[in-house]
Design a protein around this nucleic acid. Structure first.
Length: 270
DNA sequence: GTGCTTGTTGGCCA
DNA sequence: GTGGCCAACAAGCA
């Protein structure tokens, strides 16, 4: 489920344990989630330290590692949840499960990174400054730096690609995943196969507005209990024979941009 | 057994 | 070099 809102909610799961000393680290050394990471250095960076603070941006999370909450960080841990990765907080003494590839054991609780399919990733950056991959992330979609002209420039550059594929490009739409892309296009009444370069000014304006709307709303509305309003496309999109919550028309599901895509053939006419 | 899955990457080709 | 497409990665489920 990891798209923008779920990543932020995942980050909050570990929040109660920030500042608590990590007494012991257990991890699955050969697991693919540590590809490109030196697990011995990860372990030594974490053991005896605390997670000082955390942040989420799009699908990325970062945790600052320091000797104590008052000290400057000496390392940073990045976590990407991939397809189905998740974070958990276990009570002290609870044993990590088969798919819990990283466990940070504290005095009061254990922090877990779980990932059945191994598409997720844990990376380490050593140093006091946050890593460049974090600092160089594209503008947050709900912020003022994500401007109309930034969107326009990108749609022009990717003019022949279908809108669905373009919205999934993290370099411009950090945090947008498969369902959010469908939700945005459904709200903007744009067909997912529509070429990015073919939008009128008014349609570009609508798309820009709905990108921001869906990002803001997903953070606000999903947060209390991880549920999705029935007025959204999302709860209707997976079941066979789902109907458009706006007009009642039967929804279409086909592969667009390499992903299963759902849209309303009436509201989103080509 | 088959075919599907909320993500990313590298290789191929125009 | 850039843009667009697609298979591969892994594991579980229907």
């Amino acid at each position: 489920m990891p798209e923008l809102a779920e990543v932020e909610l995942s980050r909050r799961i570990w929040e109660p344990a920030l500042g608590a000393r990590i007494e012991r680290v257990s991890l699955h050394e050969r697991c693919r989630v540590f590809r490109g990471t030196d697990v011995a250095r990860l372990r030594s960076a974490l053991e005896g330290s605390v997670l000082k603070e955390s942040a989420a941006h799009g699908k990325q999370m970062i945790f600052a590692i320091a000797a104590s909450r008052r000290k400057t960080p000496h390392a940073w841990m990045g976590i990407h949840l991939g397809m189905e990765g998740s974070l958990h907080l276990l009570e002290r003494g609870a044993e990590p499960g088969k798919h819990d590839h990283l466990a940070l054991h504290g005095r009061g609780q254990t922090l877990i990174f779980r990932d059945i399919r191994h598409f997720g990733r844990v990376i380490l950056h050593e140093g006091a400054e946050a890593p460049s991959w974090w600092r160089d992330l594209p503008p947050v979609l709900t912020g003022t730096l994500f401007t109309r002209s930034l969107l326009e420039e990108f749609l022009t550059r990717r003019k022949r690609a279908p809108l669905k594929a373009v919205l999934l490009m993290q370099e411009r739409f950090p945090g947008v995943g498969n369902w959010m892309a469908d939700e945005i296009l459904w709200r903007a009444r744009l067909h997912p196969r529509r070429a990015a370069g073919s939008l009128s000014n008014a349609q570009q304006q609508t798309l820009w507005r709905e990108v921001r709307h869906v990002c803001r709303d997903s953070l606000r509305k999903i947060a209390p209990d991880w549920s999705y309003p029935d007025t959204w496309l999302f709860p209707h999109r997976w079941k066979d024979g789902g109907d458009c919550p706006r007009c009642g028309m039967g929804l279409t599901r086909e592969t667009v941009g390499g992903r299963t895509t759902c849209w309303c053939p009436r509201c989103q006419a080509h």
